[in-house]
């Protein structure tokens, strides 16, 4: 290939991810943003104004003036939404930490397992994906309900005298999220532990670390990229989670995903639900951008 041709090819390769992001992320986001600035209406689509090429340029400019931030003002004024955001973040933080605490030892064990059994272990971690997510969450209802498997087991063993009420509480949501998202935490941590040079741990032992200290001073810091990736993969979808709180949570459980679903389907208020979604996105994206900025700065130091 000529030099010129390969230069064009290189550019084209870069265009693909950008085009993907533009079409499937940026464009839908702007549509959502634009709907969030509209006003609800009994019409099809159920909001105003509706831009139409028939109006011509001047007509569209006129209609741009009709857009307003009224929905955001409304959200800020209603404690329901603020509480839903805070409650979602709290549930997501707690479940992410719980997932990390369970996933790290699993990933560590997998990385330390003999080469022969590693593919099998990896397969076992991914295996639940073969069953529909919905069915697995329904299965938890059968396990957690008062006359469910868990209570029967504990009653038989004599650990408890009367059934535990787990289903339709936040506990059930934590269990559901931790269970569903565990592989997303295990896999990145496993991959960062697995590629780590074993002689680093030996060097730490050689220099006087007990095995536990060697873990905290060397292994854990070096697995941080995996831990961070795993936490993101769990935290972000957990904040907006809808199915798990809907099926396992109780009526008092307030999560933003459920609120959004109510606004969109029950109230048919597209503009308010679009505003809810936009704020959710900002809550998630802004801290991540700050974090990445700090990370890039830390990497650049000392050069």
């Amino acid at each position: 290939m000529s030099k010129f041709g390969s230069a064009i090819f290189n550019r084209l390769v870069i265009i693909i991810p950008y085009a993907w992001l533009t079409i499937f992320f940026l464009a839908p986001f702007f549509i959502v943003l634009r709907i969030s600035l509209s006003e609800t209406a009994i019409a099809m689509p159920p909001y105003l104004p509706v831009f139409n090429l028939v109006d011509g340029v001047s007509g569209i400019v006129d209609k741009l003036g009709e857009l307003s931030v009224a929905n955001y003002v409304f959200l800020a004024g209603d404690a329901l939404y603020t509480n839903a955001y805070i409650s979602s973040l709290k549930i997501a933080v707690i479940s992410t930490i719980a997932t990390l605490l369970i996933a790290y030892p699993i990933a560590y064990g997998m990385a330390k397992a003999p080469n022969m059994v590693r593919p099998t272990l990896l397969m076992l971690v991914i295996l639940p994906f073969w069953t529909s997510f919905l069915i697995r969450v329904y299965a938890w209802i059968a396990i957690l309900k008062p006359e469910g498997l868990l209570n029967q087991l504990l009653l038989t063993l004599g650990v408890i005298d009367e059934p535990l009420i787990i289903l339709n509480t936040n506990w059930a949501i934590y269990i559901g999220i931790v269970y569903s998202y565990l592989p997303f935490m295990v896999l990145p941590i496993y991959s960062s532990l697995e590629k780590m040079d074993h002689s680093l741990t030996e060097a730490a032992l050689d220099l006087g670390c007990t095995p536990i200290r060697a873990f905290w001073r060397v292994t854990f810091p070096l697995s941080m990229p995996g831990v961070i990736a795993g936490c993101m993969l769990v935290f972000i979808p957990a904040v907006g989670e809808f199915v798990i709180p809907d099926l396992l949570g109780g009526s008092e459980t307030l999560m933003i995903g459920k609120t959004l679903w109510n606004e969109f389907n029950a109230n048919r208020d597209w503009p308010v639900s679009a505003a809810v979604a936009t704020i959710l996105l900002l809550i998630l994206v802004v801290p991540i951008m700050f974090f990445q900025h700090a990370q890039a700065k830390a990497d650049g130091e000392g050069k």
Partner: peptide
């Protein structure tokens, strides 16, 4: 155990802590 021996080792891969 290695961490109580008065010997130190220089590793073939150097095993420098990258962080």
């Amino acid at each position: 155990p290695p961490y109580r021996r008065p010997v130190n080792m220089m590793f073939q891969s150097y095993a420098l802590f990258p962080h």
